[in-house]
Design a protein around this nucleic acid. Sequence first.
DNA 1: ATTATCGTTTGATATTTATCAAGCATCCAA
DNA 2: TTGGATGCTTGATAAATATCAAACGATAAT
Lengths: 232, 232
Amino acid sequence: MKVSDTAEIRTLPLFRDMDDAQFEVLIRGAYVQTFPPQIELITEGEPSDFLHIVVEGTVELFATWNGHQTTMATVRPLGTFILAATIKDAPNLMSARTLERSRLVLLPSEDVRNVFETDSAFARAIVVELAQCYRMSIKNTKNLKLRSSIERLANHLVRKQIEAGGAKSFELDVEKRRLASYLGMTAENLSRAIKTLQSYGVTIDGAMVTITTPEALLNLAKPMPLIDDPEH
Amino acid sequence: MKVSDTAEIRTLPLFRDMDDAQFEVLIRGAYVQTFPPQIELITEGEPSDFLHIVVEGTVELFATWNGHQTTMATVRPLGTFILAATIKDAPNLMSARTLERSRLVLLPSEDVRNVFETDSAFARAIVVELAQCYRMSIKNTKNLKLRSSIERLANHLVRKQIEAGGAKSFELDVEKRRLASYLGMTAENLSRAIKTLQSYGVTIDGAMVTITTPEALLNLAKPMPLIDDPEH
DNA sequence: ATTATCGTTTGATATTTATCAAGCATCCAA
DNA sequence: TTGGATGCTTGATAAATATCAAACGATAAT
């Protein structure tokens, strides 16, 4: 494993404050692997063998039922999945696939659980991380239950613009059909929703989003920290 | 605070394995209060002052946006809310109201955070609890995104029957309009969905549910541990 | 016992969302 | 350069879901 990877992972809140020796234990047992696009890394229902860390590339988390499939999240560097399953030694509730060539660090779940039992700083960091994940999921539920699909799209764009530093134009970082699935709508309806947003000063050409009248969009989106702010 | 309450709370997974002295610290700082129905106990957006434990009665967690409101969960003895906000010292993402006369134990969030820093057994229990909550929320998201409202209702009934020990008849424990909101539908459509379920061998008279042909209902519901089993 | 209130049900209608089919655009490999 | 393949868009239609209005029924307060 490259030293630069190790150093990068160490900066994550999850590993930042843990004991040097215990971090070493995790790193010694770790695997680094590069995967081509469209590889299924984990499958829902299977036991969680590893805590995955995305060092490079993009991973999609998705879930299925009765022939349907939905995108639950997109994980980019330096994101991890799926901590809850690793800690509880429980089956994964989601599957994961690479969307592009991706490099991942795999920490054996058993090692993570062992270090969790030993290193109380790590345990505390895990608490904070899980609380964060839980709150994110609650926000997502509110988003789904309280808003229509076009309102969800509007808020997604508002948020992405903030993440792009407030730039008038920015690029969508996922395929539209995956964005649609994430937002809980079909690709067809995303296409139509985008058209509707033109009257709110939004134009989307390919992956390029331009927001000409942010006030109009905000007036539709009505964003709220308790749903839309990942930090809140 | 009554000794019987203390003993009961001590049996919760969250408090079971913690240090006696630290548990004492929590109990010493605790308040016990009985509330009439329809009292708003916490408000979304407000800081989390207490970890609430429902000892008697029923509490509804709900969220609002732009004039809309949705039921997020129902908490009964011995359930707690909202651990993630308490631990992160973050604002509550949901509001809570009593649905009936209810007795609650309130642990000051600051105490909980302090003991969490001190008692590693408590910290580990919090990890398990948060992981559980997170997974529950993910399952709920899958339920919402992958199923239609009638499928959600069907699965809810299947689950409630299991919780009723498999009895052919059992009672709904919440008002229908709240059940509707929890399931992400209107009260009117819940009423119609119940009618539709008659052809699947389900009759609901008032709060009394009777399932005459479980096979037919199961065939519609297609329950799946990765969505419907709270233990999984 | 009576009235008032509130939850539930039903019907009519509107809106939202999905599905199906076709054409268009883009990208990549032969 | 040229086919595919795949993703995106558009139109037509169907299904799911929400809204509005009214009636009904249970419950609680007077």
